[in-house]
Design a binder for these strands. Structure first.
Length: 279
DNA sequence: AACCAGGTGGAGC
DNA sequence: GCTCCACATGGT
């Protein structure tokens, strides 16, 4: 999409391919807030602020403009993606409810930890736990913002501390997975291997099952041909495809077959729509 | 007071 | 390979 990187900000036109509220509220990231008409987004040790500047334009300010241009995937043409999605009739409601969802290019480690916490949990609690972990174990960025802990910082967090963060029974999974990462599990390398091989590898980490693995593949590792099936997507599948199917692995395979390379983004639209309109 | 939330691990078969 | 079940925790 069209944008200009200036010295200290990015200016871009409001388009149907970028809806900041839908992007953030679609459950792919947990470190953001809305204050005084401004969306504040955190990723690793970086912060961006996004707001309207006039009826036609928006502005992103940050000390890390290039990082966030990539993070929000400004260089991918979502006009094409949206027109492809429009060809699926059952995407109509989701697209008309809120266009402009994007898949963020998030940090792999941060995504992995956040989505282990996400299992059988709800978004407001996930946000609270992640925020607690950043505030207590991440570096201070400025007066109001804390970084997500580095792997080294994560490795010092005890199981008890993860319980205090409100992660409940997922605390031991977090400790064990972090240990595996410290012991040489090559998370970044999974960006460059085949999706199925990367999935198998992720599934060896404690607290990572099929759903969390797909979220990490999609949001943190850049794999687009995945379809995380959670409770909401399962409802969608039962509504639109097969009322009686209960096996989420089968749902995923069927959905990926239908949507191909559009799987990730289609999933995100359907999740957001279903969760906001619990009908 | 049951049921739910961006499910997973483990036991038993 | 399956099918049950327990699991921490806050909200409805």
């Amino acid at each position: 999409m069209e944008y200009k990187i200036l010295d200290d900000k990015i200016i871009f036109k409001k388009t149907k391919t970028f809806n900041i509220k839908s992007i953030l509220d679609s459950g792919q990231m947990f470190r953001y807030r809305f204050e005084d008409g401004v969306f504040i987004v955190q990723s690793c040790d970086k912060v961006a602020k996004i707001c309207d500047i006039d009826p036609q334009n928006m502005m992103l300010t940050s000390k890390n403009l290039k990082y966030f241009a990539n993070f929000f995937d400004f260089d991918t043409n979502y006009d094409i993606i949206i027109s492809e999605l429009e060809k699926f009739k059952f995407m109509k409601d989701a697209l008309s409810y809120s266009c402009g969802v994007r898949i963020l290019r998030q940090d792999a480690l941060e995504t992995l930890i956040c989505f282990i916490i996400s299992a059988n949990n709800n978004i407001s609690r996930i946000k609270k736990s992640v925020n607690y972990i950043c505030q207590h174990f991440g570096k201070k960025i400025d007066e109001n913002n804390f970084a997500f802990p580095t792997l080294k910082e994560l490795s010092k967090i005890s199981e008890q501390d993860f319980v205090l963060a409100g992660t409940g029974y997922r605390a031991p999974y977090l400790v064990k997975t972090i240990k595996m990462l410290c012991d040489g599990f090559e998370l970044e390398k999974l960006k460059t291997v085949e999706t199925e091989e990367a999935r198998k590898s992720l599934l060896t980490l404690p607290g990572v099952g099929p759903k969390v693995a797909d979220c990490v593949l999609l949001f943190g590792l850049g794999h687009k041909k995945v379809f995380p099936v959670d409770t909401w997507i399962a409802k969608v599948f039962n509504d639109y495809f097969d009322k009686n199917e209960k096996d989420r692995i089968k749902m995923r395979k069927s959905l990926v077959k239908t949507f191909g390379d559009l799987s990730g983004i289609a999933q995100q639209y359907l999740f957001y729509y279903k969760r906001e309109n619990k009908n």
